[in-house]
């Protein structure tokens, strides 16, 4: 009998618990950035709410199924990292039926969709900003004066010869980052000579192969490598190391950016491996997609919605009652000028 009551209480309490859980639907758990974002969520969550993670395995169909499933439990809100930003309107329509607020993260749905309901929010970073920051890192490297480039202009022609490693073709981030970094450089008066724009699918291994193809052609001309993300930057550095760049003379696993065969590579995202590479002197810099701040903003916003408080009272500004923009952060090696 006592056992029965015990079991009953456990079931009851576990039922209660599920009601307090907020479904957190990731587009792909294997994504490095989403991994660190998820970890940040658990690390920084000191509020009374708990999150339950779901993995859409990069399939909108699976994500749709997950959403249909979690809405049946009538959660107080759901957090969705959409697989396909264009399909987000269906998620909004579906949530309207049960009056469940949604926080979209990391992939921005169309503005018209976000504006179609007042209980939809977006927390994320502006993709253009990452490109602008990336461009700024490179500008700083080259002396911050477009008319007088420093010694990183290896051939001294006043132009910056570059290779751009682009993400997956058609991917919004890839398109915007590629376009914006070029625009930003040009708008600031830098003369950018693009040796090659090559897609490496956001992946380290593909970037490694792409660089191995490009190096025989451009190895003496490259002055900087822009990469749409850190993973491809790592692939490029691996290829460069094999080709004789980045010699580690004292074999302490670190290189000095002053050496002759050092080539600046810049990434975006700020994944742990990239940070390590910067600390070891291989990677010049990266633009950190601030998963910590983003996680904090999501936690605060979720908590406010969960407790029926006014979302505007949280410590992050909400633009148009919809958007919480998280700033990227620049992170790079100190620059040595001769």
């Amino acid at each position: 009998m006592i056992l029965l009551i015990f079991v009953f209480t456990i079931t009851l309490s576990s039922c209660k618990k599920t009601n307090y859980e907020i479904p957190f639907i990731l587009y792909d758990e294997e994504d490095l950035f989403m991994m660190s974002f998820r970890d940040s969520i658990f690390l920084h969550n000191s509020s009374d709410i708990t999150f339950k993670m779901y993995d859409s395995t990069n399939s909108q169909i699976i994500q749709n199924e997950i959403i249909n499933g979690v809405l049946l439990d009538s959660p107080k809100l759901i957090i969705v990292n959409p697989v396909d930003r264009l399909g987000a309107y269906t998620i909004i329509e579906k949530s309207k039926l049960t009056d469940t607020p949604i926080i979209f993260i990391n992939r921005e749905p169309l503005a018209e969709d976000l504006l179609s309901w007042d209980k939809v929010y977006y927390v994320g970073a502006k993709p253009e900003q990452s490109a602008i920051y990336q461009a700024e890192l490179v500008m700083e490297l080259f002396g911050s004066n477009p008319n007088n480039l420093n010694n990183y202009d290896l051939n001294g022609d006043g132009k910056i010869q570059c290779i751009i490693l682009k993400g997956q073709e058609g991917h919004q981030d890839a398109e915007i980052r590629t376009e914006a970094v070029v625009n930003e450089m040009e708008e600031n008066g830098y003369d950018l000579e693009i040796l090659k724009i090559e897609s490496a699918d956001f992946r380290t291994s593909v970037a490694f192969d792409v660089m191995n193809e490009l190096l025989p052609i451009y190895r003496d001309q490259i002055e900087v490598i822009f990469s749409n993300n850190d993973a491809m930057a790592i692939g490029a550095i691996n290829a460069l190391k094999e080709d004789g760049f980045f010699t580690d003379d004292n074999e302490d696993g670190k290189v000095d950016s002053n050496i002759d065969n050092w080539i600046p590579v810049v990434g975006i995202d700020g994944i742990a491996e990239a940070i390590q590479l910067i600390e070891d002197g291989y990677l010049y810099g990266t633009v950190i997609n601030d998963s910590e701040s983003m996680a904090k903003a999501v936690i605060e916003l979720s908590s406010a919605i969960f407790n029926n408080e006014d979302p505007e009272t949280i410590s992050y500004p909400i633009l148009y009652g919809k958007y919480i923009w998280i700033d990227y952060k620049k992170y790079s090696l100190p620059i040595f000028e001769e």
Partner: peptide, 28 residues
């Protein structure tokens, strides 16, 4: 349905309706 699936009757025939979004478009 918007998105998802359920059993429905269409023209007196029992059907399973499954609605999903089509990536890269706004279509369902």
């Amino acid at each position: 349905i918007i998105i998802g699936g359920s059993y429905v009757i269409v023209d007196d025939i029992k059907m399973y309706a499954s609605v999903n979004t089509l990536n890269a478009t706004r279509w369902r």
